[in-house]
């Protein structure tokens, strides 16, 4: 199930990957899946994503991990993604990243700002433990201010409780 959700999100992010605004995942509702095979990045399909780019991270590594309600420990299913992220960052030593911590809407604003900061730092600490230089990582919390998807149900909330790695 997580794989399916993840691939959908990854596709959506691919569409928006050329934009500079963080977290422009577009409308996740509806038939976003129809864009799955559509290359909107300029037609350079032969080359694929530029190595070390955000698009590369999204397509080949996975840019985000998810958290349980009001939790900030890295889940077992997130460890693979973060391990790949750490390897990827070792492969591209000039790449610096910002890790965004996000929450679902089932908490109050200020508490969620603190919780989002915890989540971003959980991701950072995991990467650092795998050997990534901490000076290459900054964190930012968006609390519940920037959900990835709209929706007032667990399916939406579970996608919004996330840590997202953004190439600077």
């Amino acid at each position: 199930m997580w794989g399916k959700l993840f691939s959908l999100t990854a596709v959506l992010l691919l569409v928006a990957a050329c934009e500079t605004t963080p977290e422009e995942t577009g409308d996740a509702g509806g038939d976003g899946g129809t864009t799955a095979t559509t290359d909107t990045t300029g037609g350079d399909t032969m080359a694929g994503p530029v190595p070390g780019s955000q698009e590369d991270l999204v397509v080949n590594v996975g840019d985000r991990v998810f958290f349980d309600f009001d939790m900030y420990d890295v889940r077992a299913d997130a460890q693979d993604t973060l391990t790949r992220q750490a390897e990827w960052m070792q492969k591209f030593p000039d790449v610096n990243v910002t890790i965004e911590g996000h929450c679902d809407e089932r908490g109050t604003r200020e508490y969620n700002l603190a919780l989002g900061d915890r989540r971003a730092n959980s991701v950072k600490n995991f990467l650092v433990a795998l050997g990534v230089d901490p000076n290459r990582i900054v964190t930012i919390s968006y609390g519940k201010e920037r959900p990835a998807v709209e929706g007032s149900n667990e399916a939406a909330w579970s996608q919004n409780r996330r840590g997202v790695t953004i190439v600077n």
Partner: peptide, 9 residues
């Protein structure tokens, strides 16, 4: 106010 450093507010 709150200050959060390293995930601790």
């Amino acid at each position: 106010m709150s200050l959060s450093v390293g995930g601790n507010s």
